[in-house]
Amino acid sequence: MTKVLVAEDDKLISGSLCDALKAAGFEPHPAYDGEETVAKTKEVKPDIMLLDIMMPKLDGISVLWELKADPDTAKIPVVVLTNIGDVETISKIVEAGAVDYLLKSDQSIDEIVQKVRDVLQRTVHLA
């Protein structure tokens, strides 16, 4: 089954995301802070990651840099999912190597699931 790492510190949001992904046939793995995200990514080796920016211990952008620096995790496509919408943050996210950027409150949960499918398809084709 396709493994999706869900890096999100808000338990309510994480719960909704995991439920929806499970219902769509994915295998969600929640992580609730930045450090846990890095550790779990190395352990689980997910096919794709949904990453929040504002998280305890290590913020999403630092997580992204750390994962991109490690050849084992560098190729995992990361979709950033956040509620920070300022240009400065967006440019940092793009610079750090995220494949896409979504504003949480702008998306329905179905749209996010669809985005996961799209990105996976694209990267599979590329591979």
Binding site: I13, A20, K104, I109
Partner: peptide, 24 residues
């Protein structure tokens, strides 16, 4: 302001997604 917007969006997102899955 950015922080406030962020803090308000988080529970709003949860409400939105929960209601969505509830309807489904």
């Amino acid at each position: 302001t950015a922080m406030m917007v962020h803090e308000l969006r988080a529970p709003l997102t949860a409400v939105r997604w929960s209601s969505e899955s509830l309807i489904k």
